[in-house]
């Protein structure tokens, strides 16, 4: 199965994180918020202007910008 990035998912899509390539302070925060390899995420919705994006992860809702999402690699769960 091919690796895609988190920002390419559509609302309702589920995926499993394979690699967090974000750098800088955002990386630390994302790890703390549960964006670690192996976590399952679901794209819940996009903001009215298309960015940021809201995900469900570890049983709660987290929103991040496309910029960070495009550096998080996932495998889609069909």
């Amino acid at each position: 199965m091919s690796e895609i990035t988190l920002d390419t998912l559509k609302p309702g899509d589920m995926a499993r994180i394979t690699k967090v390539r974000v750098k800088g302070p955002a990386r630390r925060k994302l790890l703390d918020m549960g964006m670690v390899a192996g976590s399952e995420v679901e794209l819940v919705r996009k903001a009215p202007l298309g960015d940021p994006i809201e995900f469900q992860i570890k049983g709660y809702h987290l929103s991040i910008r496309k910029e960070e999402a495009s550096q998080i690699f996932v495998q889609k769960i069909e």
Partner: peptide
């Protein structure tokens, strides 16, 4: 600007 990494609480 700081990254937008925000919980959407219920």
């Amino acid at each position: 600007p700081a990254p937008f990494i925000m919980e959407m609480p219920p």
